Computed example of a mutant assay.
Amino acid sequence: MKWTLFASVVLLASAHVLALLRFPCAQLVLDRLDPLVNPGAIPSPHLHQIVGGNSFNATMDPKKDMPKESTCTTCQFSEDFSNYWTAILYFKAKNGTYKRVPQIPNSGFDGVNGGMTVYYMQDGLYDFAQKSKVTAFQPGFRMYIGDVNARSRKDVERFRQLTYTCLDTINTRDPQTLDFPAKPCKTGIMTALRFPTCWDGKNLDSPDHMAHMSYPESGSFETGGPCPATHPVRMGQLFYEVIWDTSKFNNKDDWPADGSQPFVWSFGDSTGYANHGDYLFGWQGDALQRALDNPCYQTCTTLKSQNNAAMNKCAGKRVVNEDIDGWIKELPGGYQANYRK
C-alpha cells in the first residue's frame, strides 16, 4: 500500500481544499464496556478506548435515537454522535508487569486528547478528488471488523486492511505490516482499521456484526472494485487511525529477554493479528450524507464543527472501577499475553 503520497497531500491540506472527510475525535472514556459484542455486560471481557457521543453505555439499544440521547460528542464535527472504539495497547515489561500505552493526536490535530482520527471516503486513497456517489450509513447501523481470536497471518488476511506502521515521525505512513513492529519505533505505532464498503441494503446489523457488509467482489475499494450482487450498495469507506505513544517504552533492556516485541492488546494478543474495531452510527439527520455528497476536508462548511476544548470537555467517567494505568500484574479482565479466557 503506497501511503507516502497520501501523507504528503494531507500535510498540504491547509493550502489546498481536499475532498476527503478526515477529522479527530478526542477520547471519551477508557472502559470495559462493549455494547456491540457484549451488550449489557458490566464489565465486558476486555478494555476499550471509546470516542464519540456521550450516550455510550453498556447496552446502546439500536432503536433509540443516538443523537438525541447524547448531549455532546468528542468528535470535531458536532453533528456526529456516533461511537467508534478499539481495544487498548499495553506494554509488557521483562518482569511480566503491564503498563497502558497512551494515545497521542495525529498529524495536524495538536491539542486533541488522544482518541483517534476518523475518515469517511467516497473513493480510494489515491483519488483525492473523491467524486463517486456513495450511500451514508443509516440510523441503527452498526458493524465490527477483525477477529479477537486471530493469532496467525492467515487469520488476519481475510480482513485485508488491519495494519500497523512503525512511526519514525508523526507523518510516517510506510511500510505497513499485519503484525506488531519488531523494533522500537521512534515516535510510536499507528494502527489503521479500514471497514468493508459494500452493504446488503437490508440489514442494519447481523449476528456477527459483519455479514451484512462485504468487501468488493474483486479488487478493492481503493481500486474501485465492484460490490458483489449479495451486497450491492456501495458505502463510503470508514477508516480509523490510532497513534500509540510507544516511544516511552523504547529501551530494549526492558523488553523480553528473548528479544520479542513487548506490546500486547488488552485481551492478551501479542501477535497483533487480532486488531479489531467497532462502530455504531449516530450522525444527526442527513449530516453524513450531505458531507459525502459535498466532499470536503476538515474545515467542512457542510457540517457544524467544534474546537478542541469542546471535544476534550465531553470526556466521560468510567463505569468499571479498576486499575488500568498503574504497573499491573495482569491485564484488566484477568488476561495474560497470548492467553484468552
Rank of each mutant, 00 (worst) to 15 (best):
T299S: 13
Q261Y: 02
Q122S: 14
K131W: 06
P181Y: 04
F267C: 05
F128D: 02
T59D: 13
T172Q: 13
T135I: 14
H46F: 14
G108M: 09
S214M: 07
R100Q: 14
F91A: 03
M66G: 00
Y273T: 00
H209W: 04
T177A: 11
D31I: 11
Q161K: 02
I145N: 02
M210K: 06
G115I: 04
G285V: 06
A26I: 03
L303M: 10
M190Q: 11
P207F: 08
W283H: 02
F281H: 07
G52S: 07
D168C: 02
F137H: 10
D80H: 07
E330G: 04
K64P: 00
H48L: 07
G236R: 02
W85V: 09
L36N: 01
I145Y: 00
A229I: 09
P256M: 12
G96A: 13
I88C: 15
A93K: 02
I328Q: 01
S206H: 08
C300Y: 07
P105E: 15
H231V: 14
A93T: 06
L33M: 12
R32S: 03
F6R: 01
P62T: 07
D80G: 04
M143I: 04
A291E: 04
T86Y: 14
T271M: 00
P139G: 14
M1Q: 03
T4F: 06
L28V: 12
D208Q: 02
G334C: 10
R22K: 11
W255M: 05
N171W: 11
S218C: 01
E69G: 00
F221H: 01
Y297R: 01
L33F: 09
E79H: 07
T271Y: 00
A287L: 08
P232K: 12
Q261T: 06
P262N: 03
Q284P: 00
D269M: 05
K133M: 05
N113H: 15
L30Y: 15
Q161E: 05
N54F: 13
K329W: 08
Q161W: 01
I243L: 15
Q122V: 13
L36D: 03
E330R: 08
V134M: 05
G277Y: 03
G219L: 01
K68Q: 11
F249Y: 11
P45R: 14
S206V: 08
R173N: 11
R22S: 10
Y90V: 01
D31P: 13
G108Y: 06
V134G: 06
M213T: 10
K252S: 14
N54V: 14
D325F: 13
F91T: 03
A136H: 09
K99M: 04
T271D: 01
P256R: 09
D155N: 09
W3P: 02
M60E: 13
G114E: 00
P332Q: 10
L33P: 15
L21S: 10
Y98S: 04
I170V: 11
A13N: 09
F263V: 14
Q138K: 09
V156A: 06
F180L: 15
S206Y: 08
R100F: 06
L193F: 02
L178T: 14
L28P: 07
T86V: 12
F195P: 03
Q306I: 01
L280W: 07
H46R: 12
S218T: 13
D34V: 00
F281L: 04
F23G: 14
S218Q: 04
K99E: 14
M1A: 07
P232Y: 13
A337Q: 14
S82I: 04
H231R: 08
K329L: 08
